[in-house]
Design a protein around this nucleic acid. Structure first.
Lengths: 157, 157
DNA sequence: GGCTTCTTCGAGATTGAATCTCGATTGGAC
DNA sequence: GTCCAATCGAGATTCAATCTCGAAGAAGCC
């Protein structure tokens, strides 16, 4: 059964991304001496099949819809490990819910959020990355992740 | 994970800041046809007296400690209005709790967060701001607020 | 001041995401 | 296959945030 998603964008799932994620996750689990369970694979599959932002609740629903019953507790537990493995990232979109997006197969990107329409644009910028890098280095920091949200309003022509 | 206090430039409390905030808040309330109540003043005082990051719960506690009893509901209601008035801002520090900081009398700044120690450094960067501005303009956006969190680890010498 | 009207407040109930508990299940090493 | 620690699930629990609605209070008017 396909994904129950609004605006039926048929999520261009590139199998290569999933394979890479699987490989990375497997290594992570081995390194951490964690087991490789069917539930963890199911969650990974679902996470990689989604190319938009999603909440835990939405993920839980689509797992169920795809016949993969995974309890809420398990979901929360393993989202954390996927985050640690660098496969998943939290996104702050200015509302009050934690949302996620997968990182593998997507380039680093930032969020531009319209305060009037809640429209969200994703883009990246080498210049921003460079400037952030310099700022961090000034304080002796090695950057591992940048979260940037730009709030504003879209100019109408 | 408990939060460490931010280090870096600790902002001095200038009474002028409070006066400016009061004036701005008063104007905001008038514009929105909202009343000027003792509770709102009490909350504003407490917010402006704090120069670190705080949770709603902490604010509630220190209000109580200072003999200003304000109910939780009132606090939440009015934090929203302080946010709208441009006096207060939410901060995302990577943990799961919403935290606040006041903006008036502080320059725009970004957060650099150590993933090992939870140490938080605040700083700003004209270069970052410029690069963000350019990125936003590319999409026809006028920037009103930038939230930037840099996660990383502190290099040890 | 006192009167009136409408906003705001507070105490407690409610919600709902996130976490915890603990007996049942399962992965994987042997 | 056997064994045992890691993991799972269902339901209970927690706790920040929100909602409800009668009481209290601000501000305009006289």
């Amino acid at each position: 059964m396909p994904n129950k998603k609004p605006s039926g964008n048929p999520a261009p799932l590139k199998p290569a991304d999933f394979d890479e994620a699987l490989e990375r996750y497997r290594e992570y689990l081995k390194r951490k001496k964690l087991l490789f369970t069917r539930e963890r694979i199911a969650i990974l599959e679902e996470v990689m099949a989604r190319h938009d932002h999603f909440s835990v609740e939405e993920l839980h629903d689509s797992l169920k819809a795809n016949g993969k019953k995974v309890s809420r507790a398990t979901l929360y537990r393993n989202l954390d490990s996927l985050k640690e493995a660098g496969i998943l990232a939290e996104v702050d979109l200015g509302n009050r819910h934690v949302q996620y997006e997968h990182v593998l197969g997507h380039r680093q990107h930032f969020h531009i959020i319209c305060e009037e329409t809640s429209e969200i644009i994703e883009d990246d910028s080498v210049e921003v990355e460079k400037a952030v890098e310099i700022l961090a280095r000034k304080h002796g920091f090695d950057v591992s992740r940048i979260k940037l949200q730009i709030f504003g309003t879209k100019r109408r022509k």
